Amino acid sequence: MQKDSKQWFVIINPTSGNGKAKQKWPEIKRLLHHYKFDFEFAFTEYSKHSVSLVQKALKNSFKHIICVGGDGTLHNTINGIMNQSEIPSSAINIGVIPIGTGNDWIKTHAIANHIESAIKIISEGYIAYQDLGKIEFENSNKPSVYFNNLAGIGFDGYVVSKVERYKKWGALAYLFGALSGIFSFNNFESKVTINSKEISGKTLMILVGLCKYSGGGMRLTDSPNPFDGLLDISIAQNLNKFEIITNLPRLFNGKITKHKKVKTLKTDALKIEVDENKLPFIQADGELIGTGNFKVSILAKAFSFYRKKNPDLF
């Protein structure tokens, strides 16, 4: 049976926001009814459960999805959409009620970090289409991973591996993760290939951005635009531990991209290779996704979502 176009499927990650999503669900449910949403819902029960939940919803002909959770919940929902063939991704619209640790993606699009305001944005019905990044692992049977905000390899992945223990501190968890990782992370040998150009050497981290903010408000790429069909690249080369510590404030104001050891550029595709016995972590939207060599490409306007119609934004 075809679902009415006004029917919604709501995915709630009860652990998001250090358990706040579960705590606030009764209020969210009441407000959804108040704003006349006709919906079914499900709670995630394990890591990446939102992937299978959204795919089941699509098989039942839902095309309007609401994510209640943080950046990881949205990331996994998008991957559920992109790794299915029931419905074209451009025909599936996502609304976000942000309750997470960093809530970084919403900052680029001025989506309110307030329950009722976020629900109002969805109810107003304005849809935007932004680019997605696609990660393909080399010499591996792993499926492709899609990201909507920022991906990277190296120190940022190491920080993500530390964040879980600090999540009770909210967005500060990423700063604490960075501070705890400075003295135990070692720079790695990498080679980045963009078109025919190669950039190689000892590296702190390589970042591939679409949107402005990550890691609880850090600004790690120079001029990201989620609508321009390009990936915004930062290659932080062989910064030593003293340089990392003295430049921590510049991670938040965007000035880190002006450091003499940081190369920035824009492209629609690149390849990253690592030459180390102990491979550094790769993260996408704050989720650890693996290790090894990989390629990244852009999928223009592949992700449709609800936001305010605001001429001051992109």
Rank of each mutant, 00 (worst) to 15 (best):
Q2K: 12
K3S: 04
D4K: 12
F9R: 08
F9E: 09
I11C: 14
I12N: 15
P14Y: 13
N18S: 13
N18W: 10
P26V: 03
A42S: 14
Y46R: 14
S52H: 15
L53M: 11
A57M: 05
S61P: 07
I65N: 08
C67I: 12
G69K: 13
G70K: 04
G70V: 08
N79W: 10
G80V: 06
I81Y: 09
S85R: 01
S85L: 10
S89P: 12
A91Y: 14
N93Y: 14
I99Q: 07
I99S: 12
G100M: 11
T101K: 02
D104S: 01
W105L: 12
K107T: 08
H109Y: 15
A110G: 13
I115K: 15
E116T: 11
S117E: 15
I121Q: 15
E124V: 01
A128H: 14
L132E: 06
E136R: 07
F137V: 07
N139M: 02
Y146T: 05
A151I: 05
D156Q: 05
V159D: 09
V160R: 03
E164I: 12
Y166C: 04
K168R: 09
A171Y: 10
L172F: 11
F176Y: 11
A178D: 10
S180L: 12
S180F: 13
G181R: 01
G181H: 03
F188R: 01
S190G: 01
K191P: 04
N195R: 07
S196K: 02
E198F: 00
E198V: 04
E198G: 01
I199R: 02
G201N: 00
K202H: 01
I206W: 02
L207Y: 06
V208L: 04
L210K: 00
S214F: 10
M218W: 01
R219K: 14
D222K: 06
P226F: 02
P226R: 08
I233Y: 02
S234G: 02
I235S: 05
A236R: 00
L239E: 13
K241T: 10
I245P: 09
L248K: 02
G254S: 03
T257L: 01
K260Q: 12
K263G: 07
E276P: 14
L279Q: 11
P280E: 02
F281P: 06
I282H: 04
G286Y: 10
L288N: 07
T291S: 11
K295G: 13
V296F: 05
A302C: 05
S304N: 07
Y306L: 06
K308N: 02
K309P: 02
P311L: 14
